[in-house]
Simulated scan of single mutants.
Amino acid sequence: MASSIPLPAVARLCTLYQVLCDLNESGQQRVSSSALGEILGVGAHNVRKDISYLGETASAGGGYNVINLIELIALRMGFNREKVTCVVGLGHLGSAILHHERFRGGEFKIVAGFDSNINLIETMHSGVNLFPAYEITETVKKMHIELAILTVPSSGAQEVAQRLIDGGIEGIINFTPVVIKAPSSVLVRNVDLTGEFRVLSALLHLRENN
């Protein structure tokens, strides 16, 4: 079912899931499609259509049951199974991700960190196992790592990605500006921070000069 959902709808449902989790934590039990649309910046009909991709769900006049909708999205999108993850590149960004409390267990669990700097690995204090970059392929296979976060210098991005691919990685979040070449069996999400700043800067410029 999830594979037939359009990518924009998948992205909105992922955001919706976090919104619903926040509402649940605040004690809210029900929410309307109009209220969700206002939070997400889309129309209520878009919210209802996105949710319809998940299958039938009760939405009476009082709106959606928050917990039921959280559970439905988690089930259909696979959020109810822990994903084993690693970080490659332990500079400032990689280290921050490695030690982030959200990745200590639950939906995503970082079990390994890699870096080409052996000295860094030996001196870094971490509750996560750290390995030299040349051990990526072997370690990914051994620990059954599914997802990787790539924060290495651009010059080595493709080589490191290939080691991950050779180890059987299923998905990569790429924080480098390099477009990673990967087989269709490996999903790559590119997060170019400089590019995002450019888009934001351009939008601000266009708004100010309109």
Rank of each mutant, 00 (worst) to 15 (best):
G78F: 02
Y64M: 02
G156Y: 06
V111M: 08
Q162I: 00
F108D: 00
D50I: 06
I110P: 13
A96M: 12
R48L: 00
S155W: 00
N129V: 10
Q158L: 07
V42H: 08
S52A: 15
L69T: 14
V47D: 05
V160R: 07
I39D: 04
R104N: 10
N65E: 10
P153T: 01
I73E: 10
L120F: 02
S155P: 00
L120C: 02
S59G: 05
V87R: 06
R102C: 10
C86P: 13
H99S: 14
K83R: 15
S34T: 12
G106V: 03
G62T: 12
L130Q: 07
E159V: 12
L90R: 05
H99G: 13
S154M: 03
M143I: 00
G61A: 12
S126C: 14
I67T: 13
T139F: 07
E138Q: 14
V160N: 08
A58I: 10
E38P: 03
N119M: 01
C86H: 12
E107A: 11
G41I: 01
F103K: 02
L93H: 04
I136N: 09
L120V: 01
I110D: 09
E159H: 14
F131L: 03
E56C: 01
K109M: 02
R104K: 15
L72K: 15
Y64E: 02
T85H: 03
L75V: 03
S59T: 05
G89R: 07
G113C: 07
K141F: 00
I67K: 15
A96Q: 13
A148N: 08
K49E: 09
V42G: 10
Y53M: 02
S52C: 02
S95K: 11
L130H: 11
I110Y: 11
L90V: 02
V160W: 05
G91K: 08
C86D: 11
L130D: 10
A133K: 11
G63N: 10
V111Q: 04
G94T: 06
V47Y: 08
F114Y: 12
E138H: 10
E122T: 13
I110Q: 11
K109A: 11
V66D: 06
E82Y: 04
D50E: 11
A58G: 01
L72A: 08
N119F: 00
T139M: 12
E71Q: 15
K83A: 08
H45D: 12
T151C: 15
F108R: 13
I51T: 07
H45Q: 08
S154G: 08
I110G: 12
E107G: 09
G113W: 03
F108H: 10
T151K: 05
S116M: 06
C86L: 09
V152N: 11
E135P: 02
S116W: 00
R81V: 11
V111G: 06
I51C: 09
A157C: 13
N68A: 14
N68F: 03
I73H: 14
G106N: 07
L120Y: 03
V88W: 02
S34E: 12
K83N: 04
Y134M: 08
A157F: 12
V47C: 06
I149A: 07
T137Y: 01
N65K: 09
E56M: 04
H99L: 03
V160A: 05
G55M: 04
V66Y: 12
E82G: 04
E38S: 15
E38K: 15
L72W: 11
G94S: 08
I97L: 15
R102D: 15
I121T: 11
R76E: 14
A133M: 11
F103R: 01
